[in-house]
Design a protein around this nucleic acid. Structure first.
Length: 629
DNA sequence: GTAGGGTTAG
C-alpha cells in the first residue's frame, strides 16, 4: 500500500465513530498506529504526531496494545509528557506497555525515573522479560552504574536470561559504559555464540576507554571469523584509531570504508574526519570534509573541535563563521570548540560574545559547557568572569574546581587557588591527578610549606602517592618551598626519575646554596647514565655561583660545552658572569669569554655588559661594547 | 509485536 494511502486510511479510521471502529475492526484496531509508524519512518512529520494525539484522546489507548505503539511513537517524537499521559490511561499495562514507558524515559535522558518505573513494575508483580531487562541494563550504563548493574546481572542469572545473546551483548555494553572493561571482556570471552552486535559492543568498549590497540585487535579477529563490518562497527574502529593516533591503520580503514561505499554517509564521514584530526592529519580531514555530500552540525563541530584541539584557533573560528553562513545551528560541541579557539587566539571579546550565544541557547547550565567557559575566561586572564561562571554553577564537579584552580594558578593567584581547593574538599569533591600538580604549584609559588604538607597528606589519603607526575610535583614543591630534606626524602623514594626531576633537585640545591649536595647528586645522576641537559647545567652553575665555587663552576661550564656538546645560552653566561662577578673577578669574566669566542652570541655579550654595569666596571664595559660591535 | 552495538566531549 502506498504511503499516501496509509495516511488517508489512518485519518479516515480516526474520523469514524469509536464504538463502531472497535466492533468493526476488532483486534486489528491498532492497525492505524502501524500506519502512523510508517508515516513516521517515511516522513517523520507533524501528521504522525497528530495521529498519535488523536489516539491519545480517543480513549482507545486504554487498551494496552494500542497504548504500547502510541507511547513508542510519542517517545520517538521526544514527547515524554504525552507518552506518560497515555501510560496512565492504560487500565492494566502489560509488560510491553511497561517496557515502552521505561524505554521512553531512558531514551529521553530520564534514567533515574526509568529505573523507578522498573522497580515499580516488579513491585506490582509483573515479571520482566528480556526487553525490560535490557532496558534496565542500559539505564545502569548511563545512570545507575556498575553496582546496580551487577544486581540486575544476578537477577538475570536467576531468571535464566543470562544465556540469551542479546542480553549478553547488553551486559558487555553496560559494563563497558560503567567503566568496568574487565567485566565486559569476561562476558565477551565466555560467549558461546556471537553476532555482529557482540563484536560491536566489545570494540566500542575498547574505543571508549582509549584502549585502541585492543579495539583494533578485536576488529581484526572479528574479520577473521567472517563477520563483515557495517557502518556502526566502522564508527567504533575509527574511534579506536583516533584514540591511539594510529594514522596508518586509520588510512587503511578509510580505504576499506570507501570500498564498502560508506564514506559519503555523514555519520561515518564525521567519524573519519575526527579520526584524521585526532591523528593530527589536518589535510586528510579537510579532504574528507570537502567531499561530504551532507555537512551537518556533527561534521562541522568535529572540524571545529578538531582544529581547536590541534591548536589552530583561527582556523576553528573561520570554520565556525562558515558554518553559520551555511545556516547550520551550533550545538553544545560546536561551542566547546569555539570557546577553546577563543582562548587559543586570546580573543576575549569573541569569548564574551560566544558566552552570550551559549546563554541564548540555554546551554550555560550544561556542566561541560560551563566548565569550558571557566577555562576559556581563565586562560584569557579574565579571572573575574571565570569566577562568575564558577559561582553561578549550581552543581559543580571536579572539573569545575580544577578549571578554576588552574585559572588562578596560571595567573599567579595562588591564595584564591588554595581557597577554592579547600572549598572543594569541604564539599566532598575529591581532588584528582589534575588537581594535585596544580595546587602543589600554587604552594610552590608562594612557598606555603604548611599548606603544602597538608596537600601531600591528601595525596596519600587519595592514593595518588604512586603517580610519578604527582611525585615529581611534590619534590618540586618541597624544593621550591625551601625544604630540601623533604624534597630529597620524596626523591629517594621514587622508582624512576627523569632528567626533569634531577633538574628539580639541582634547582633546589642551587636555591638553598648547597653546592656539596648538588655535586653529590650530579655524580649520582651520572651513575644512572642520564645525560644532563642545558637546564640541569643552568641549575648546577647557579648552585656554584651561590656557593662562590669559581673553579667548579668554570669546570662544569666547559664540561657542558665540550663533553655534552651543549651550546651555552645567555642564562649559562649569566651564571658564569655572576659567579666571577661575585668573587670580584670581572677581568677574568672578560678573559673567560675571550677564550671561547665562537660560543658568544648577542645574548652572551648582553649578559656580560649587564654584569659590568651592575658591578660598576665601566672601563671593561666599554671595552666589551666596542669588541661586541 | 518490541531491541541490542554508533560519530563530535571540558
Amino acid at each position: 500500500m502506498s504511503k499516501i494511502k496509509s495516511v488517508q486510511r489512518s485519518q479516515s479510521y480516526l474520523k469514524e465513530n469509536r464504538s463502531q471502529w472497535e466492533i468493526v475492526h476488532g483486534r486489528r484496531k491498532c492497525l492505524p498506529v502501524v500506519y502512523a509508524q510508517s508515516i513516521l519512518e517515511s516522513q517523520g512529520n507533524v501528521l504522525c504526531l497528530q495521529l498519535c494525539r488523536g489516539f491519545s484522546e480517543s480513549g482507545l489507548v486504554s487498551v494496552s496494545y494500542v497504548a504500547d505503539h502510541v507511547i513508542r511513537l510519542f517517545a520517538t517524537h521526544r514527547s515524554l509528557a504525552e507518552a506518560c499521559q497515555v501510560f496512565y490511561k492504560v487500565s492494566s499495562p502489560s509488560v510491553y506497555t511497561w517496557h515502552a514507558i521505561i524505554s521512553a524515559h531512558m531514551k529521553l535522558g530520564q534514567g533515574n525515573k526509568a529505573f523507578d518505573l522498573y522497580v515499580m513494575m516488579q513491585k506490582l508483580g509483573i515479571e520482566a522479560n528480556k526487553f525490560v531487562f535490557m532496558c534496565a541494563l542500559q539505564i545502569c550504563g548511563c545512570e545507575k552504574g556498575a553496582s546496580t548493574g551487577r544486581i540486575i546481572h544476578d537477577e538475570l542469572i536467576k531468571s535464566g536470561y543470562e544465556l540469551d545473546l542479546s542480553i549478553q551483548n547488553t551486559l558487555v555494553d553496560m559494563y563497558a559504559k560503567c567503566g568496568s572493561l574487565a567485566e565486559s571482556c569476561s562476558i565477551f570471552s565466555k560467549q558461546q555464540e556471537r553476532n555482529i552486535v557482540s563484536w560491536g559492543a566489545m570494540i566500542a568498549g575498547y574505543a571508549a576507554h582509549g584502549v585502541g590497540i585492543e579495539g583494533l585487535e578485536t576488529f581484526r579477529r572479528m574479520y577473521q571469523k567472517g563477520f563483515m563490518p557495517n557502518s556502526i562497527i566502522y564508527l567504533s574502529v575509527l574511534k579506536a584509531c583516533g584514540s591511539i593516533e594510529a594514522l596508518e591503520q586509520g588510512r587503511l580503514l578509510h580505504m576499506e570504508i570507501i570500498r564498502d561505499g560508506m564514506h559519503l554517509d555523514e555519520v561515518v564521514g564525521s567519524a573519519i574526519i575526527d579520526m584524521y584530526l585526532k591523528c593530527g592529519s589536518l589535510l586528510d580531514a579537510d579532504t574528507v570534509f570537502e567531499d561530504l555530500a551532507i555537512k551537518d552540525v556533527v561534521s562541522w563541530s568535529a572540524m571545529i573541535l578538531g582544529y581547536a584541539d590541534q591548536g589552530h584557533g583561527q582556523k576553528a573560528l573561520n570554520l565556525y563563521s562558515d558554518m553559520l553562513s551555511e545556516d547550520i545551528c551550533p550545538n553544545k560541541l560546536t561551542f566547546l570548540g569555539v570557546l577553546k579557539a577563543c582562548w587559543l587566539v586570546g580573543n576575549l571579546r569573541q569569548g564574551l560574545y560566544m558566552h552570550s550565544e551559549v546563554v541564548s541557547q540555554s546551554l550555560d547550565s550544561d556542566l561541560v559547557v560551563a566548565n569550558t567557559l571557566i577555562d576559556m575566561y581563565a586562560k584569557c586572564g579574565a579571572l573575574n568572569e571565570a569566577r562568575h561562571v564558577f559561582d553561578l554553577l549550581s552543581s559543580k564537579d571536579g572539573v569545575s574546581y580544577n578549571s578554576m584552580i588552574q585559572g588562578y594558578v596560571q595567573n599567579e593567584h595562588s591564595l584564591p587557588a588554595l581557597d577554592i581547593y579547600s572549598s572543594m574538599r569541604c564539599r566532598g569533591i575529591r581532588p584528582n591527578k589534575v588537581t594535585f600538580p596544580t595546587i602543589l604549584k600554587a604552594c610552590s609559588n608562594i612557598r606555603a610549606l604548611i599548606e603544602a604538607r597538608q596537600i601531600h597528606a591528601n595525596v596519600i589519603t587519595e592514593e595518588f602517592d604512586n603517580d610519578s607526575t604527582i611525585q615529581s610535583a611534590i619534590v618540586d614543591m618541597y624544593a621550591k618551598c625551601g625544604s630540601m630534606v623533604e624534597a630529597i626524602n620524596m626523591f629517594e623514594r621514587m622508582q624512576s626519575r627523569d632528567i626533569v626531576l634531577w633538574g628539580t633537585i639541582f634547582t633546589g640545591c642551587a636555591q638553598s646554596g648547597d653546592w656539596q649536595l648538588a655535586r653529590q647528586y650530579f655524580l649520582k645522576m651520572q651513575g644512572y647514565n642520564l645525560k644532563p641537559d642545558a637546564w640541569v647545567f643552568n641549575s648546577i652553575l647557579t648552585a656554584c655561583s651561590h656557593a662562590g665555587e669559581v673553579n667548579e663552576g668554570r669546570w662544569y661550564f666547559l664540561s657542558m660545552i665540550h663533553d655534552y656538546r651543549i651550546k651555552p645560552s645567555a642564562d649559562h653566561f649569566n651564571c658564569i658572569i655572576d659567579l666571577l662577578g661575585r668573587s670580584g673577578r670581572l677581568d677574568e669574566a672578560s678573559d673567560f669569554f675571550q677564550s671561547i669566542p665562537e660560543q658568544l652570541d648577542i645574548n652572551g655579550w648582553t649578559a656580560l655588559l649587564t654584569s659590568c654595569r651592575s658591578y660598576g666596571n665601566n672601563k671593561l664595559g666599554n671595552e666589551c661594547f666596542s669588541e661586541a660591535m
